[in-house]
Design a protein around this nucleic acid. Structure first.
Lengths: 343, 343
DNA sequence: TTTAGCACTCTTTATGTTAGAGTGCTAAAA
DNA sequence: TTTTAGCACTCTAACATAAAGAGTGCTAAA
């Protein structure tokens, strides 16, 4: 644990660096943040902080910048808590008022709000449906041999799939099959609906024999597709180019291509996100090398202990953590309320 | 009309500039493209071409670069037609094989293929549903007071909307209403379903009186939402940063924020796209100033004379037009086939 | 323990210089 | 009349050099 004076200095350096993106020297600290000690003393303390690993120096005669360890200490102990200003409050409140009828739209809107308010890139991972329960299945005929299979989950997500209707099933057959599927499967978690369950349904309804087989296989397939609802919504990526960190086009390009690698982003979000808490992953704390100079702040969206998605922000390690925390907290707060009213 | 020698020179300059992004001088042309005349003669011709507006000079002692007018002439008269290589053929063919069951997925895939093959940004505007016909409407009950309204169009697009089911309608009521809606509305183009049509249905089914009113209003609302299916899919934007045109971060940022302005992009696509033809809009030919240094190549996706979407490429004016044309042509070709088989 | 003073380091910015590419013009050649 | 060689001229990009500025670490005094 650092002593109070070191904390003050570290805090001042990080605050300043977050604001200016420039290495900061002893003189500046003494002038701008009146800690009541001379630059020389600050220099000594800074040398200590560097030795302890909280700061680093781009080159011998430059000021100091925070290291990842420094940011970590800042986030854990030093970061001031921050109230939202009226503008931010207003924008977030408007989220709730938007006429949104589906979970996915809501989540997308939330992403836009977050990126708008923070200027960082918001990444939102849609509802994880493994633990959702099946609410309704229905097969509707569209044409002679084409139908629509609709799957509704307890999270309010709807997925539809155009399917081939085998042979000459009548409409009432379809209805009966739909009913049977519903009475057997409704209320089950998606992950509980396994091949065995399907087999037992098949056994119960041998009258339809292989026609049913085909439909059940299709359902199974579509359920799997539904489960893997790993759609992510990223918004506000162009704003990131305003940060001096990305003044170099090469870096900007790397960042943007990173965002296009959906699979990687999904894994990162999932590993970094701890339930019921805002999690920060700073630079090299991230196991993927591509994120060396980026920080990720995530929080889960939970309603009734169900994980309905992950809300994240990705930005340079020099990030306004304090602002990001306050906004992320508020948005997920509102999101939770909005979702509850939606379910 | 230019004489043949001027055409050759203009052609060489544009080909070279497209490949290298460097102003090109008389000496280089004489060396690389053996037209059989000396640099001095080429210089004279270049001065003529500049006076005619086909070329311009970044500064007095630099080579020439094509002007917008030059590109226009190139695209209209000079551009070599180009065959796809095997790799490109293979990638495009794979499009058809992808197991895709919905129009929108297909369109999205096509966008990815285009951006992959061209390295420019592909922008695809989803099916314009105004002229599509209603294929099926159905209301399904999910809970006591919640239902799902499903709208299927003749283009194979499905849209669903969670709605409140008013009062205590029974399931068979819902079925009857669905049937009535279907028999009255199926086959009608979406744009034909007006308030008047709705009113006449209301008149036919007074038994349900205001309950029906509510549902019909909801349907109307949702149809409107369905019609405005202006979803665009952009892919491959990060690759654009590799072009020297975007080596300046400021330009890169402008380009990326441009892409985020969906409404503008939609308008641009719609105005630039002429039916059944590949259209090129070069730089300032575009009425929107933001596109000064960009070119847009678009083509409509038509099946049975119905516009099912617009396929576009956006890139720097220094674009490999020839390549883009060949790829765009082939992709929409395949797309048409794939869509026909889907409908 | 703190601070003033100072020599030293390193980057950034400005300035000047040079090499190279390309042009336009003129006069000779075809 | 058209083409070409030659040449003076222009402009940029690249490099070297110098000066200014910011910041440090160390020493010695407070």
């Amino acid at each position: 644990m650092l002593d109070e004076r070191k904390m003050k200095i570290l805090s001042a350096i990080i605050d300043d660096y977050i604001a200016t993106a420039e290495p900061i020297g002893s003189r500046t600290i003494a002038r701008k943040y009146h800690i009541g000690i001379s630059p020389a003393t600050i220099r000594n303390e800074m040398a200590d902080l560097e030795e302890l690993g909280y700061l680093s120096q781009p080159h011998t005669s430059a000021g100091r910048i925070p290291s990842n360890k420094g940011y970590r200490y800042y986030v854990d102990f030093l970061m001031p808590s921050r109230k939202l200003d009226e503008y931010e409050q207003a924008i977030i409140k408007r989220l709730l008022k938007k006429r949104v009828r589906e979970l996915e739209d809501l989540i997308e809107e939330a992403g836009k709000v977050i990126s708008k308010l923070t200027s960082y890139t918001a990444i939102i991972l849609g509802p994880q449906l493994e633990s959702s329960r099946l609410k309704h299945v229905q097969i509707i005929r569209l044409e002679e041999k084409k139908g629509l299979m609709i799957i509704v989950t307890s999270y309010g997500t709807v997925s539809h799939h155009i399917i081939e209707i085998p042979q000459n099933l009548t409409d009432s057959d379809l209805q009966r099959i739909s009913n049977a599927l519903n009475s057997n499967l409704t209320g089950k978690a998606l992950e509980e609906i396994t091949q065995e369950v399907m087999n037992s349904i098949k056994a119960d309804m041998i009258e339809y024999d292989n026609v049913l087989n085909v439909l059940l296989d299709l359902l199974m397939e579509n359920l799997d597709e539904t489960k893997e609802n790993n759609r992510i919504y990223a918004s506000g990526s162009s704003k990131m180019l305003e940060f001096p960190e990305f003044r170099d086009v090469e870096r900007a390009k790397n960042f943007l291509s990173l965002l296009e690698r959906q699979d990687l982003i999904i894994r990162v979000l999932k590993t970094s996100c701890k339930p019921h808490d805002i999690t920060v992953t700073i630079g090299s704390e991230n196991p993927w090398a591509e994120f060396q100079e980026l920080s990720i702040v995530t929080t889960g969206i939970f309603v009734e202990d169900k994980n309905l998605g992950i809300c994240g922000i990705i930005g340079p390690t020099r990030m306004e953590y304090s602002k990001v925390f306050s906004i992320l907290e508020k948005v997920t707060d509102y999101l939770n309320k909005a979702i509850s009213s939606l379910l």
